[in-house]
């Protein structure tokens, strides 16, 4: 265990102990500290309050604060673990951890299930999937006849909704993802492997004397 100093980052409103966060996530202490550099820059981009609001989140992701999108909103809601309308550093690290290449497969399955379960009922319902499909078509400018959308939904639910009750439960989702592993591709961010190289300035603000992994 490293030795701690009282540094400016400890006074930062959204800051949490990197050693504790590292123990709870797929990140090392150094990686958590590197993420703090990213977090500081995002959380001060519009309002310098040490928390990430939705506008700052979208600005960081899309370089455009006005882009309203169903998926962006859903990702923000999932990162906002404590449901405070803002993301603190702990939320940020724990949520991003799911996207780490070394994060447990089950965590990725759980997160993706929540992502598609828009209303949080514990089921992915046909209407939710249709809503997301339409959002995707709007975003991409793709045009598909409603009949084609329904055929795609029929096929999807025929494969995924094994008990044919019109909704996909967690266990059906787990099986469906096992048969279609490419569905989890969006759940891995290769950038997270090199986070300390992307934000090398963390070294100057590090609170640990030695690298703790």
């Amino acid at each position: 265990m490293g030795c701690f100093h009282s540094t400016a980052s400890k006074q930062f409103p959204g800051h949490e102990d990197p050693v504790i966060l590292a123990s709870q996530t797929a990140f090392s202490v150094s990686e958590v500290e590197a993420l703090f550099e990213l977090y500081k820059s995002i959380s001060s981009s519009v309002i310098d309050d040490g928390l990430i609001n939705k506008e700052e989140f979208q600005l960081a992701l899309f370089k455009n604060r006005k882009k309203e999108n169903l998926f962006a909103n859903r990702i923000f809601e999932l990162f906002d673990v404590k449901k405070k309308g803002v993301i603190d550093f702990g939320d940020f690290v724990k949520s991003l951890s799911v996207f780490h290449p070394n994060a447990p497969h089950e965590d990725k399955i759980d997160f993706s299930f929540k992502l598609y379960d828009l209303d949080g009922t514990g089921f992915i319902e046909r209407q939710e999937v249709k809503q997301m499909l339409i959002a995707l078509l709007c975003e991409s400018g793709m045009k598909l006849a409603d009949e084609t959308v329904e055929i795609i939904l029929d096929k999807t639910f025929l494969e995924a909704d094994v008990n044919q009750d019109g909704k996909i439960d967690k266990s059906e989702w787990q099986n469906f993802v096992r048969q279609n592993p490419s569905l989890l591709k969006i759940m891995t961010l290769p950038y997270l492997r090199d986070i300390t190289t992307t934000f090398p300035s963390f070294v100057f603000h590090s609170e640990v004397d030695e690298i703790v992994t």
Partner: peptide
Amino acid sequence: KNPDSPTLINAFQLIGMSSCLDLSGFFEK
């Protein structure tokens, strides 16, 4: 399976194409 029937992409593969589900933007300057 009918070999003549076209292979349809499933709904989640399509949804996964959304650029808004790609968090790489956090790391691109």
